[in-house]
């Protein structure tokens, strides 16, 4: 995305987020076009499946490089669940693993030039966040029944404050998926927009003077490294927050 901005400063840095139809599909009047975003999601899914299945295919005792990487991510998520949810979190391990890998791969694919960043799409991040939110709420109600409503009145709060505390806690609970999705969306969008803006300075400045062109170039290099870190960090944060919400739903407090 940094390299396709040679058109100069007039190029809109938000254009990289535009969704375009690739294959037109309509099912029963519903618009189910395969867009560039859906294409990247499919690529990410296929890449994760290939990554986890092929590298472990030989199931060797002494792992190769790829197999170690797969095992590392497996244990990374397993430890995350054990630390944040506890042993009751075991059944949700495949979900958190899929979530983390999906976001990580989408973020990383977004770092490739000319590709598309799915996780900068508000629908995608909010979709994932609401899946987590609804899933966690269901887990809470299945585990505690009506008692899960007690979650909205923290222990130790005097009764007369309940009319004030309960709506605020309820609202705070409803805000969770929004902030979860918004955080991923905002980080990825802001990072990629910034990259685009700085990359837009490189060509026009560098065309006339080498030294001024080098400054935004250095910024682009630095930002790219930062973006790789953020790509990982945001996948991690999303997964950890999902684990924490799961912990709250399972243990109530």
């Amino acid at each position: 995305m940094a390299t396709d901005s040679q058109g100069g400063g007039g190029h809109n840095p938000l254009e990289q987020f535009a969704v375009e139809t690739w294959i037109d599909i309509d099912v029963a009047g519903l618009d189910l076009d395969i867009t560039n975003s859906a294409r990247v999601m499919a690529i990410a899914t296929a890449a994760i499946i290939a990554f986890t299945m092929l590298s472990i295919g030989r199931r060797s005792m002494v792992p190769g490089r790829m197999q170690s990487l797969v095992e590392l991510s497996y244990e990374f998520i397993a430890n995350m669940i054990r630390d944040n949810v506890g042993n009751e979190g075991r059944p949700y391990f495949p979900f958190v693993f899929s979530l983390f890998m999906f976001i990580l791969f989408c973020n990383m694919i977004g770092m490739l030039p000319y590709s598309f960043t799915v996780t900068s799409q508000i629908v995608v991040t909010f979709g994932l966040a609401f899946v987590v939110f609804i899933g966690v709420t269901i887990v809470g109600f299945v585990r505690h029944g009506v008692g899960f409503f007690g979650f909205f009145l923290p222990q130790g709060v005097p009764g007369f404050l309940a009319p004030l505390v309960i709506p605020i806690e309820l609202l705070s609970y409803l805000i969770r998926p929004v902030s979860l999705g918004l955080r991923l969306f905002a980080n990825l969008t802001a990072g990629h927009t910034m990259l685009k803006v700085f990359a837009g300075f490189v060509a026009p400045l560098g065309a006339f003077y080498i030294v001024p062109g080098a400054i935004p170039m250095a910024a682009v290099v630095g930002l790219t490294l930062l973006e790789f870190a953020i790509a990982f960090l945001q996948a991690y944060v999303f997964a950890v927050l999902s684990c924490i919400y799961l912990h709250d739903a399972i243990h109530m407090h």
């Binding site: 519903l30 618009d31 867009t35 975003s37 629908v123 995608v124």
Partner: peptide
Amino acid sequence: FLPQFFWL
């Protein structure tokens, strides 16, 4: 929104 969510 709908196609993206569907494919997601």
